[in-house]
Amino acid sequence: MSDPDSEISKRSGRIAARRAAIAIVVLLVFTGFIFWLDPTDLYLWIKAVHVIAIIAWMAGMLYLPRLFVYHADAEKGSVQSETFKVMERRLLRVIMNPAMTIAWALGLWLAWTGGYFASPWFHAKLLAVIILSAVHGMFSKAVRQFAEDRNDKPPRYWRMINEVPTLLMIVIVILVIVKPFG
């Protein structure tokens, strides 16, 4: 006989994953539609979708290491640990990976269209985004390690790492808004 709580959790997880997938498909279709129409006339719409993708990506980048803090405290194999594994995997695959991909694709298009590749502030911003993407990769590896019960880092480590995306976000926003290097 199966555990009713487990079945409810699986069903609600499937519903949440389906809703997230629908939202991503709608965003991708909308983005494709924008490009099909004529991207040069829809620059601000593309910029809006880019910012939406960045917000989703950053939400995940700020939340995932917080999950790691709690997961590192959970007993391996416990119900709590297994719940964190599901949460981390879904956050990464359903929100963070697609959001990062959309942010990169549209961001590069916006930079090309806006002629920013020659700007020093853009080079600094691009470097910060590359570092943020590397942190994303590190978080992806950590999700795999937690899933395999191979995390060897204490909660304190994840608390400190939790600040890295925040610092990078601050740098990136200042570079985009202020453009300190001309």
Rank of each mutant, 00 (worst) to 15 (best):
G60L: 01
N162E: 12
E82C: 01
A118H: 10
A134S: 12
V129P: 06
I130E: 04
F117T: 03
E148W: 08
R159N: 14
V143N: 02
A56D: 07
I34M: 13
W158I: 04
H50G: 11
A142C: 01
S78F: 08
R14D: 12
A99K: 02
D41I: 00
E7Y: 00
A128E: 11
K85H: 08
Y157K: 03
M96S: 01
W104V: 11
I130L: 14
R18Y: 05
W158D: 13
W104F: 13
I54M: 15
L62A: 13
M169P: 03
M1I: 12
Y63K: 13
V129N: 04
S2H: 02
K10M: 13
P39A: 07
I46D: 05
A17M: 07
I54F: 15
V25A: 15
K141A: 10
V176E: 09
V94E: 07
V49D: 09
K47T: 07
A103D: 10
L37M: 09
T101I: 11
Y157V: 12
R14H: 09
M58Y: 14
A21H: 03
P120Q: 12
V49A: 05
T83G: 02
P120K: 07
A134G: 14
M100T: 04
W121V: 07
I172P: 02
V94A: 14
R93K: 14
V29P: 01
E88L: 10
E148Y: 10
W158Q: 02
F146G: 04
V49Y: 00
A124E: 09
A105V: 07
L91S: 11
A147L: 08
M160E: 11
L64W: 04
A59S: 14
I52G: 06
R156P: 02
A17T: 14
A21M: 03
T40N: 12
S12D: 12
S6W: 05
W45A: 15
A17F: 03
R89F: 08
G182A: 11
F117P: 09
K85S: 12
I172W: 01
V173W: 06
W109L: 03
D3S: 11
A17W: 05
S9I: 06
M169Q: 07
D73K: 15
L110N: 13
R11C: 10
G182H: 11
Y157R: 00
I172D: 01
I22S: 05
V171G: 04
M61H: 13
L175P: 11
M100A: 13
Y116T: 10
K10Q: 12
T40Q: 02
A74E: 00
L168E: 07
I177C: 06
M160Q: 05
M169E: 05
A142M: 01
E7L: 15
W158R: 00
G60N: 09
S133P: 03
V171W: 04
I172N: 05
M61K: 03
M160C: 04
A53Q: 02
A20E: 14
K76Y: 00
V173A: 12
